[in-house]
């Protein structure tokens, strides 16, 4: 796993992808997010932002998942290689 300063999923530009490094949310939220497939090593694509700027739409494991920015901020990602 590449090292470096943790980058947040919330900072991934529209249309770009990233690899989940760690879900650093509160335990109950982290558990849910991981069960939805956001485990370390999973590729995530930033698809869209809602009209009012929040929530965001992600594409993960061939389905579309919407979460709020607060949650996305706590998901650490690495750039795709």
């Amino acid at each position: 796993m590449p090292n470096g300063i943790a980058k947040s999923l919330a900072g991934v530009p529209l249309g770009a992808s990233a690899i989940v490094r760690r879900v650093a949310s509160a335990r109950s939220i982290a558990r849910r997010l991981m069960e939805l497939g956001l485990v370390p090593g999973t590729r995530v694509t930033m698809m869209r932002v809602a009209p009012f700027g929040d929530p965001i739409e992600l594409r993960v494991r061939n389905y579309a998942l919407s979460i709020r920015r607060t949650e996305a901020l706590a998901i650490e990602v690495d750039d795709t290689v």
């Binding site: 509160a26 109950s28 939220i29 849910r32 997010l33 939805l36 929530p55 739409e57 389905y63 579309a64 998942l65 919407s66 979460i67 709020r68 949650e71």
Partner: peptide, 12 residues
């Protein structure tokens, strides 16, 4: 208490 999160699937 903690506000429930939004985990919303957007089906096709």
């Amino acid at each position: 208490g903690p506000r429930p999160t939004l985990l919303l699937e957007l089906p096709p």
